[in-house]
Amino acid sequence: MTIKRFVGTLAGLGLAMAFATNAAAEEDERFINLASTTSTEQSGLFDAILPQFKEATGIDVRVVAVGTGQAFELARRGDADSLLVHDTAGEKAFIEEGYATERQPVMYNDFVLIGPGEDPADIADADDAADAFARIADAEVPFASRGDDSGTNRAELRLWESAGVDPGGEWYRELGSGMGPTLNTAAGMDAYVMSDRATWVAFDNRQDLEILFDGDEALFNQYGSLLISEERHPHLKHDLAKQWHEWLISADGQQAIADYELDGQQLFFPNAGENGDD
């Protein structure tokens, strides 16, 4: 009977697949889960450097790309073997809470201020980042904020503070989204937006948006790698995570980061060993 054969085939297929899933999972015991940010994932950096790390050590790094806030939460609950994020203050607090034992600066990129080409708030002529933010608030032109407690969001809020602005009102739009969706939305409503340079360079749907202001040191975006506390989460793969952590700040790792280019632009600048706290 056709139906019976069909159901039988389906059942067999399902079981075979279930086994295949398990087999694939067991094959690769040497891997770690790395909680990191969407900006590093979407810029293509991991695609470039992870194969080199794997070649050197045989370890697979599985990247779970989320906002910095969620990345901390994953690590706090013991769901990530390693952490690579960009929120220096948050990282230090994380160590103080006892969830991580060591933090190393790895690299930086920078934030850029993006807006519609006509630049109605005239931020291209701003003196510094704080001035640019103040001009946007004065002009009350639409500004798209991540609003998701990510590293970028936290940096943006610090910049508003330094501009002496308490952002709010019709023009200030908190999206509660990742960098990519926020850029998509900003493009759709011709809004100003702050993005890390890497995500912006890798981003395709720009429409009328372009970089209007960059280069101020206040827009510096430091990435740090954290070693998670063995005491707090003994079940994690600390040995493998330590190898990853050390490779990132090693000469090889730093070189791999420096070598990554997109559209002829270097996106991340290795600075391991430097103070790099701000």
């Binding site: 979407q42 990247v63 969706p181 850029l183 395709d204």
Partner: peptide, 24 residues
């Protein structure tokens, strides 16, 4: 799943990722 490349990336999460990258 975490949308891990090569491990847990499926059609729908790949679509979200590409949308986020603006690669509509």
């Amino acid at each position: 799943g975490g949308n891990i490349d090569g491990v847990t990336r499926v059609m729908t999460t790949a679509i979200v990722l590409e949308t986020n990258k603006g690669n509509l």
